[in-house]
Computed example of a mutant assay.
Amino acid sequence: MTKAQTLTWLRNISGDLASETLKKLDDTLPWYGTMPPSRRSAVGLVAQAGITSFISWYDDPSSQPWIAADVFDAAPRELLRSVSLQQTLQLIRVVVEVVEERVKGRDESVREAILLYSREIAFAAADVYARAAEARGLWDARLEALVVDSILSGEYDNELPSRIAALGWNGHGEVCVLVGTTPRIVDVDQVRRIARHVDADVLIGVQGNRLVVVIGRATPRGEDGTDAPPTHTFAQIAEALEPSFGEGHLVLGPEVPDVVEAGKSAKAALAGFAVARSWRNAPRPTHADDLLPERALAGDPIARRTLIDRIYTPLKNHNVELLATLWAYLDNGRSLEATARELFVHPNTVRYRLKRISEVIGWDATGSREALILQCALVVGSIAEPGGPRR
């Protein structure tokens, strides 16, 4: 057959090729059969456009060098979101197999043309999906920055959960915010890889010289396929992420119930980051609650309220003797003997009361750093008492 006769024959059987292709798609690709009718129709349009485009390309390969890219113009944009690149390549393979089967035994140049054109189609498909992924990546980056800004500013609206869901957030339950200095080069992908290794998901935002990471624990899968309990604490996750931050202080905010309330953790972390330099031997990372004295002195109302609610009020409500013992112990330079003389009790009684204080509030007054926190809590709590400071 001459080339003109081959072209005429191909044009005559193009409709049959499209029908055979759709039938083979239905027989060989399970995902095609489960698609809604509108999506199946769109896939059929792509297959028909591919066959028609091949015939035009075979007629004159040099007249339309980018004709392969036009195949996907027949498909709606929604098809890119419902059909993956892997499925698209499977579709191309089925079309090529159908056309090859029909031209078998005819002009060998047609088979070679099919191989060349299928390569162009595959590259065109990869280009389409690459451009879509790039556009989606830029959109996701802007959306992620918007979400982190909303969390830091505490501006909650009804759209915040849907925006977080659009980013593919995999965190469940409690959330913490980690604030540190921005490194010279922010490797966002590396931060996400590290987070995945410790069963966590992150939202990342760069705020000038501050790098903010919202941490949520992803639910790991057990050996039987069911959800397993979290294997890493937030402190362990923060330690794993620590190398991704620049030099300087790194502050981890307190846990909050879910990502929607992450603004509370962010406020504490930002307040702690602002005063962390005043703690000479601050660890990295530092818990925001370990910086309560510095935050309270800097005028952070959340820190003052936390000191009162977690230290002063529980001691006062539990036993007034414990509060008086703590005052005396700290005022006397943490001396057991001096405290016992002031209270007219035995030193062992002071030891027992200090142990009870630790059990009630969770802080140990015998440690130098925790003694500072407790001293600040007593001062702030007494100032907040009705009628002014009093012992």
Rank of each mutant, 00 (worst) to 15 (best):
R221M: 11
A68F: 10
P283I: 00
R295I: 04
E144Y: 01
L22N: 02
I114G: 06
V128N: 04
K24W: 12
R277E: 14
V379I: 06
P254F: 13
L89E: 05
Y58I: 03
R40W: 02
E321W: 09
Y312L: 05
V128W: 14
D107Q: 13
L354V: 06
D289S: 12
L146R: 14
E261K: 05
P293F: 09
E385K: 10
P36G: 14
R192V: 10
N317P: 00
T2M: 08
L115V: 12
C376S: 05
E342Y: 03
F234D: 07
N348P: 00
S153H: 08
G216A: 01
A235L: 14
R119V: 02
L250M: 10
I302E: 14
V128G: 01
L374S: 00
A126G: 07
Q48M: 13
V186A: 01
L322S: 02
A328M: 06
E97L: 11
F245Y: 15
A135Q: 06
L330G: 02
A238K: 11
G246R: 04
L7N: 09
H346R: 04
P389W: 15
W9N: 09
V379A: 11
R131P: 00
S109D: 05
F344Y: 10
E294Y: 12
A384W: 11
A68T: 08
K316N: 08
I357D: 05
V43P: 07
L378I: 10
V95A: 15
G248L: 00
D364G: 02
R334G: 06
L336E: 05
T366E: 14
L307G: 02
Y312Q: 03
L10G: 11
R81Y: 08
G388W: 11
L115P: 00
V345K: 06
E78I: 09
L167Y: 04
S358G: 13
